[in-house]
């Protein structure tokens, strides 16, 4: 089963919840950090025996001795990543989406592809928790290829928890796609509510079942709760504001070790999710 932990707004406690769920769940569990622009879950999981592999994308290479400057490559490219001059073609890898169009469109066979690194993946484990993290190389613009590479590590027979990037655009879509359930973490503030509504609309658009966790639930007003009630959204958990949680977070300690009295809350949160997924499936 795949459960994504997402939020419209950043900094609402998505990673805290994802790590806590991973550490309290029974049986084979894996945690995938798909927030590849700013991955942070490893700080709390502290995985051991890590192995790093490169994530590569395919970039066209033009053989100038064959190129006859027919311009087809530049014509098919929607991203202006390849130009055809009178004597040769030039490639701009940072604009390339690796669609392979130029390679197929070139009638002379002058274009081949080579792998170029765009990020890395690290795998490791800690106390039986399997951990996979993606990291986009600084200066690279497109995170979906790295996110997709992280998600390839999903195991069928495990509970897979996915820590998503914030927002509602392509990286989030790449992370939550094909998940069985999405846990949206928010906070009870106007910003939290506004961004939650966007996240809810996104999940509805994608047809994914979801529920809401309100973090620092007593630190704002009641508008998020009211919204969830009016929209008939499952409220999965309320986590009260707690200075001990904030301090543990700042030191990189996981919430389940620092504040063990919260463990039952995460257990019951997970049970609720299982119940809801069961309902969807039957």
């Amino acid at each position: 089963m795949n459960i994504a932990i997402a939020s419209g707004k950043g900094g609402t406690g998505k990673t805290t919840v994802a790590v806590a769920l991973a550490q309290t769940a029974a049986g084979p569990v894996q945690l995938l950090d798909c927030d590849v622009e700013e991955p942070n879950a490893h700080i709390f999981v502290k995985p051991e025996a890590c192995i790093t592999h490169a994530v590569n994308v395919l970039i066209p290479v033009v053989d100038e001795s064959i190129c006859d400057a027919n311009g087809k490559c530049s014509e098919i490219c929607q991203f202006n990543a390849i130009v055809s001059l009178k004597t040769k073609a030039m490639v701009f890898p940072e604009l390339c989406h690796s669609c392979g169009g130029c390679l197929r469109a070139c009638p002379t066979g002058a274009i081949t592809e080579e792998e170029q690194q765009t990020g890395i993946i690290e795998t490791g484990s800690r106390d039986g928790l399997e951990f996979v993290m993606g990291r986009l190389d600084v200066g690279q613009a497109m995170s979906p290829p790295v996110i997709r590479a992280v998600k390839k590590h999903t195991k069928q027979d495990a509970l897979t928890l996915i820590d998503c990037p914030p927002g509602t655009s392509c990286p989030v879509i790449a992370a939550v796609r094909d998940c069985d359930f999405v846990v949206l973490v928010t906070e009870p503030t106007p910003f939290g509510l506004h961004d939650l509504i966007l996240a809810v609309e996104t999940m509805r658009e994608l047809g994914l079942p979801f529920g809401v966790v309100i973090n620092r639930s007593d630190a704002g007003d009641r508008r998020v709760e009211d919204y969830c009630r009016d929209e008939k959204i499952h409220l999965l958990a309320m986590i009260p504001e707690n200075r001990k949680v904030a301090e543990a977070y700042s030191r990189g300690e996981s919430i389940t070790t620092a504040v063990p009295e919260l463990v039952p809350l995460f257990r019951s949160l997970l049970e609720k999710v299982f119940e809801l997924v069961g309902e969807v499936r039957t």
Binding site: E37, L136, G139, M142, S143, P166, G167
Partner: peptide, 10 residues
């Protein structure tokens, strides 16, 4: 600006 380091931030 947006969070992260990817395309909208750049």
């Amino acid at each position: 600006g947006p969070p992260g380091i990817g395309c909208p931030v750049i």
